[in-house]
């Protein structure tokens, strides 16, 4: 986080995932998409929401970690940004929820 953190290598140099692992992640994403569509086909009702959003969360984590290199990120502030944004959103939604369900 300090000033010395700014002296670092650009990350287009090959210290992130390999070409093969990108394709593997793509494969995983396609499989997960197929799974989520299949799951939605069964009539799971309320569980379907949890499963579908759970799979979506896994998929976006894969994109964030590998495609967007968050796994190889060494700056704390950047690692924290997505949790901060999601956290802020969760609070916004949660507090609004506290009104809507008790109204």
């Amino acid at each position: 986080m300090n000033a010395d953190a700014s002296r670092e290598m650009p990350d287009a140099r090959p210290h992130g995932p390999t070409t093969r692992s990108y394709v593997a992640v793509w494969g995983a994403l396609i499989v997960l998409t197929a799974t989520t569509v299949a799951v939605a086909g069964f009539n799971l009702q309320k569980i379907a929401i949890i499963v579908c959003l759970g799979i979506a969360a896994v998929k976006s984590t894969l994109v964030l970690f590998y495609f967007m290199h968050l796994r190889y990120e060494h700056r704390l502030i950047i690692k924290l940004l997505i949790p901060i944004a999601i956290g802020a959103l969760a609070i916004f939604i949660g507090l609004t929820f506290s009104d809507v369900i008790t109204r």
Binding site: A88, L95, S98, D99, T102, R103
Partner: peptide, 22 residues
Amino acid sequence: GSLVWGHHMYVSGQSDTAGIIF
């Protein structure tokens, strides 16, 4: 300060529970 917006809405029709939290 980002968690207190509902205090603009005590009499707006917002639920009483939410009013108390805010």
